[in-house]
Amino acid sequence: MSAPVPDLERAFRVVVHLGPLQDHGMTRAGHRRVVPIVGGSVSGAFEAEILPGGADWQIVRADGSIEVDAQYSARTPSGALVLLHATGVRTGPPDVLAALLRGESVDSSEYYFRTVVRIETSDATLAPLQHALFLAAAVREAERVTYTAYRVT
């Protein structure tokens, strides 16, 4: 018996507004950076406002690639809270990664930025989102990250 071949279904779009990068330097885990999440929005499978207080806890690899580990909360218009947890990688040629770090505009075709997104919520209407993985293709801009998340079937 063979395993099913997954498909991707467009689920939601996220715009995450970022605060100033905090460079913690070399720690026991590696070169640690923290990027505060200060707001944003979710639209599509559910609508929500991203709340300030989350962050992306990054590790910068020796080759300049970045391991992404972002966690942040969002609130729906009905008041339900949703936790989004995105883990992944952003990589590309050194000059492109340096340009992104300086906040320059870089075409997303010049680098690779993908995450797996997990949802956590106590809201019964959104509970089915907790039983799926979402694959996202992201774009890094100077003060925000945008991504479209696809449900892996």
Rank of each mutant, 00 (worst) to 15 (best):
S2A: 08
A3D: 15
A3S: 15
P4Q: 13
P6D: 10
P6C: 14
L8N: 12
R10Q: 13
R10S: 15
A11Y: 03
V14I: 09
V14D: 04
V15T: 13
V16G: 00
L18Y: 08
D23M: 03
G25M: 11
M26V: 13
M26Y: 13
T27L: 15
T27D: 15
A29K: 04
G30L: 01
H31P: 04
V34C: 05
V34A: 14
V35F: 05
P36L: 06
I37C: 06
V38H: 12
G39E: 11
S41N: 09
S41G: 12
V42C: 07
G44F: 13
G44A: 07
F46T: 00
A48P: 02
E49S: 11
E49G: 02
I50Q: 05
I50L: 09
I50G: 02
L51S: 10
P52T: 08
P52G: 07
P52W: 15
P52R: 07
G53I: 11
G54K: 00
G54H: 02
A55L: 06
D56M: 01
D56A: 05
W57S: 07
Q58M: 10
I59P: 00
I59R: 09
I59K: 01
R61P: 07
R61Y: 15
G64Y: 06
S65Q: 07
S65M: 11
E67M: 11
D69T: 03
Q71K: 14
Q71A: 09
Q71G: 15
Q71L: 08
Y72I: 08
S73F: 08
A74R: 04
A74P: 03
R75L: 10
P77G: 11
G79F: 12
A80W: 09
L81I: 14
L83E: 12
L84R: 00
A86S: 13
T87W: 03
G88C: 12
G88N: 06
V89W: 15
R90H: 10
T91E: 10
T91V: 05
P94T: 07
V96E: 07
V96S: 10
V96R: 02
L97T: 02
L97E: 00
L97K: 01
A99H: 02
L100A: 04
L101Y: 13
L101D: 13
G103I: 08
G103E: 15
G103L: 08
E104V: 01
S105F: 12
S105T: 05
V106S: 04
D107V: 01
S108G: 04
S109N: 12
E110P: 01
Y111Q: 06
F113E: 02
F113P: 00
R114E: 13
T115Q: 04
T115D: 05
V116N: 13
V117P: 03
I119E: 00
S122Q: 09
D123F: 02
A124I: 13
T125I: 03
P128H: 14
L129C: 05
H131C: 07
H131I: 06
A132C: 12
L133C: 13
F134E: 09
F134I: 06
L135D: 15
A137N: 11
A137M: 11
A138G: 08
R140G: 07
E141H: 08
E141D: 11
A142W: 11
A142L: 12
T146C: 01
T146E: 15
Y147T: 00
T148W: 02
A149L: 04
Y150D: 05
R151M: 14
T153Y: 09
